[in-house]
Amino acid sequence: MRSVEIDPIGERIEAVRQAASAQTLLAATAVLATSDHGNGVNNEAIACLVEVLGFNNPGAAVAAVDGLIALGPEAVEPILESLDPRNYGARAWAVRALAGIGDVRGLDLLEEALASDIGPSVRRAAARGLGQLRLAGLPREQRHPIAARCLEALLAGCGDGEWVVRYAVVVGLEALAPELQPEQPGAPPRGLAQLRSALERLSTDPAEDASVVNLRAALALQRLAPLSAAEGAHG
């Protein structure tokens, strides 16, 4: 006689779907989001976490975003397919999830969010995400155009009206810098000088009312000094 197969993921999805209160939804989402998926990623689990993004329950949405980030690239298509222009909240959480996953398929949404989302916390997440797209696995000829788009979006974000977004732009620029290094000595510059001068402006801007932004930009420049020197010498 066979023992009954227990499907813990299935049960956990069911718990999220059955949750009757904000508290139980948060708890059930947190359990599902931290589940070990073993050999294969469970598409139903992804769909369920994506659905939670639209429930207007911030606690549960935070847990679902963490879960989706942990699932990584598998979660990107379901997130993009679920985007609903009429549900602003869900869209904002989707931006956060895509920023954390760092998959290039999220690039369009991240650009759009940094440029025009009304929520500073969404623009903040998008700026961070634009600095940390995972480009390492892509063919060479694709990498640079994508990095250039990220740079352009982040340079425009330097003028954001909210200090926390400018702070995130600085962090994004620092993270993006290695992608902009010339491939070999003597190769044409790829925007590193532009990135550096943007950081220089942010580190000294007298109109900046948040000195923490000045300070963070100065720290980024200090960390990037070796890279910048290399482009200066050859480009």
């Binding site: 911030p58 500073p120 916390s121 903040r124 926390v164 923490v212 300070l215």
Partner: peptide, 15 residues
């Protein structure tokens, strides 16, 4: 609490 508020608090710790 929301990260937005923690970030404001930490900005205060820096400044």
């Amino acid at each position: 609490a929301e990260n937005s508020l923690k970030l404001i608090a930490l900005r205060g710790l820096v400044e």
